[in-house]
Amino acid sequence: MTEQQVLRQSIVMVFVVAAAGIGFGLASGSASIIFDGIYSLTDAVMTTVALLVSSLITQRMSERRQARLVQRFTMGFWHLEPMVLGLSGILLTGAAIYALVMAVSSLLTGGRDLDFGRAIAYAAVVVVIAVTMAWRNRRANRTIGSNFVALDVKGWTMSAGLTGALLVAFVLGWAMQGTALDHLTPYVDPAVLALVCLVMIPLPIPVIRQAMADILLITPADFKADIDRIAREVVAQHGFLDHRAYVARVGRGRQIELYFIVPPGQPPRPLEDWDAIRDQIGDAIGGDIDNRWLTIAFTTDPEWAD
């Protein structure tokens, strides 16, 4: 199964869950279920955008459209991936913060009545769907290794946790009806929504942090160390003076620029010899060459490398 297939199937299921959440939320009077539906709808929209970006990166499109886009984006589409991931994380966190404010406001104004029967039925079905999709997509991503699918798995996991908490709260609220605690039932829905939001607000932060690091082209220390090690071996093997390495990770793409300082006055070499050194370096770096932008230059003037 490909990345695009996983995301397409996930999008369909998320839209189904979102529509059901908003509908059941309005029918049962539950703000927490409405929030669950809106949260799922936001996730579905961002997953759709992720699918489009994935298609651009892997160039799964018509040749005519591909040629037109390549003319406008000659450096590739990798930079779109962290933008989408970061925006998705920010929107999900923002939705949770807004829902928390609404939940606190509802608690301060006496809560709200709720049809626990419909709420329990909705929550039970969604928990099953979310757990199934999270497990299925996580297993598929073991082979795919996609950041988009990983974020989608996290979204389904969060949805399962959110709806599972709602299910437990609704069952407790239903059990409280007709007892000495019946007067507390209007507070069940806003209280559980507030608690769930407090848990969910920080969850997308690691994704946002990594996306910002990619957007700002912050150099990964381990990646830089590995490239420097390979470059030093090339310097020693071929008698160069030094090297300069500039690396960044942008989504799934790796951008690498290597400059080697060659001693002046050396006898000229055929271009084939320099290309052979480039091939040697490329093989040593390895990785997914389809998502690697590798530039290797040779110069006797260090100013060209700095």
Rank of each mutant, 00 (worst) to 15 (best):
R249T: 09
I129C: 06
V6H: 02
L172T: 07
L56Q: 05
T132I: 01
G37V: 12
I261D: 05
G37H: 07
D273H: 06
I97L: 10
I129W: 02
V16A: 15
R136I: 08
R292T: 14
A211Y: 11
R209T: 14
L41Q: 12
D214C: 08
G21D: 14
P264N: 00
A245I: 03
G164R: 07
V196W: 12
G110K: 09
L193K: 01
P82E: 11
G89E: 03
V196L: 15
M83P: 05
N141K: 04
T42M: 12
R68Y: 12
P268G: 05
R118D: 02
A95R: 04
I285E: 01
L107T: 01
V153K: 00
V262P: 08
L181I: 06
F223K: 09
N147W: 06
T300K: 00
G287N: 06
R232N: 14
P268A: 07
D288R: 10
F73D: 13
G111T: 00
G287D: 04
A124D: 00
W156I: 09
R229P: 08
S88W: 02
Y246L: 13
Y39E: 02
V168T: 12
N291Y: 11
I227E: 06
T219Y: 04
L56F: 14
R229T: 14
A245C: 14
I215Q: 11
A180N: 12
R232F: 05
G251F: 09
R139M: 13
P186K: 06
W135T: 15
